[in-house]
């Protein structure tokens, strides 16, 4: 076990993948000499050369589109989109090319491409640097979408994503890049829990609290605070957003009877809606209350002086937990 930051854990995972498979290569803007704007790829070009850690021109569609061609040739490209809000120029290549090529070629052409995207807010950045676009990709057939919430998961899941024969959009919670945690670098990704599997972070019996990415830590803190008030919250880290491991969530809700989902992305058409609908379909008669969503608002990502109002925090999550439990909360009296 080694104590390391989230960013370092990804770096270490990338290094292992580069070591283990000569077909793995990294592409992106500023990832080589600079080591990435968040230093996630620090030192990798020096050690693996500029043909395996490629500084690309500033063209996101170009980065993903050339990765498609490299995958056609048998490579496993790992591309970095510098910030969440810059992924849209590559949208066609991701949605129409990366996601569909296996289907269109009737299984002949595999697209083992990993698209790394730092996402989420809370770092005081200007616009386009703090977005949560995961639902666009979770909605796209052919893609897998995952997001790690701990340094250990970051280290393991990046390797699992790279070795996956399907394309994976890998969202990295950028405000957690500098959080530290214990990482077992010797852990074999093949024997670790698969990236498609959700994880129960905190056992509980009164309410199920589903989170992913940057909000898993917030959810865990909320569970600790709730425990002080005698409420037992079971926190689930989804890890995979497409597909969602509903079996794990369902098992928890069958136990607690109550469901709260939280994410930074806007509410409407988001992952929370999918989780709420699917869990309601699967175990309606085990639910004691309607599922509650605590999410960002349906607004363009706001400027940094007000972003704290947009982002779900510990208190808003606890307010949602109170709603699920039928305890006094900010909307008491409004609900039917």
């Amino acid at each position: 076990m080694t104590q390391m930051t989230f960013a370092r854990a990804i770096n270490s995972g990338l290094r292992r993948s580069l070591d283990n498979d000569p077909k793995v290569l990294l592409m992106g803007e500023d990832i080589g000499t600079l080591g990435g704007v968040f230093r996630v790829t620090d030192g990798l070009q020096k050690d693996f050369g500029k043909h395996r850690v490629v500084d690309t021109p500033l063209a996101e569609s170009g980065i993903v589109g050339t990765a498609v061609g490299l995958a056609y040739r048998g490579y496993r490209p790992v591309v970095e989109i510098q910030f969440d809000g810059f992924v849209y120029p590559a949208f066609d290549q991701i949605v129409s090319q990366v996601a569909k090529m296996h289907y269109r070629s009737r299984g002949a052409v595999k697209m083992p491409i990993t698209i790394r995207i730092p996402f989420g807010g809370g770092i005081g950045s200007p616009e386009h640097h703090s977005e949560s676009p995961e639902a666009y990709f979770a909605h796209t057939a052919g893609l897998r979408v995952v997001t790690p919430a701990s340094p250990q998961d970051a280290h393991t899941m990046i390797q699992q994503a790279i070795s996956c024969d399907d394309p994976v959009v890998f969202f990295e919670p950028k405000r957690r890049y500098h959080d530290k945690g214990e990482v077992d670098e010797s852990l074999d990704p093949n024997s670790a829990p698969p990236m498609g599997q959700a994880r129960v972070v905190t056992d509980g019996s009164d309410v199920t609290l589903v989170a992913y990415g940057p909000l898993v830590k917030t959810a865990r803190d909320a569970a600790t605070a709730a425990a002080d008030e005698g409420v037992s919250v079971e926190v689930i880290d989804l890890r995979s957003l497409a597909p969602v491991d509903f079996a794990t969530v369902e098992a928890s809700v069958r136990k607690t009877g109550r469901l709260v989902i939280t994410h930074e992305a806007g509410q409407s058409g988001g992952l929370g809606a999918e989780v709420a609908a699917s869990i309601t379909e699967r175990c309606f008669y085990h639910l004691e209350a309607a599922p509650v969503r605590i999410t960002g608002f349906d607004v363009p990502y706001p400027y940094s002086k007000v972003e704290m109002h947009h982002l779900p925090n510990l208190d808003r999550i606890l307010d949602g937990v109170d709603r699920a439990l039928g305890r006094p909360n900010s909307l008491s009296g409004l609900e039917g």
Binding site: T66, G69, A71, Y72, R73, D92
Partner: peptide, 24 residues
């Protein structure tokens, strides 16, 4: 490759493939 319907998208695929040829 199989035919590309999205206009011009395949030019990037060819470029990436050629990068692979170069690497190989």
């Amino acid at each position: 490759a199989i035919p590309q319907i999205v206009i011009g998208a395949q030019t990037l695929h060819a470029t990436g493939y050629a990068m692979g040829i170069q690497n190989d």
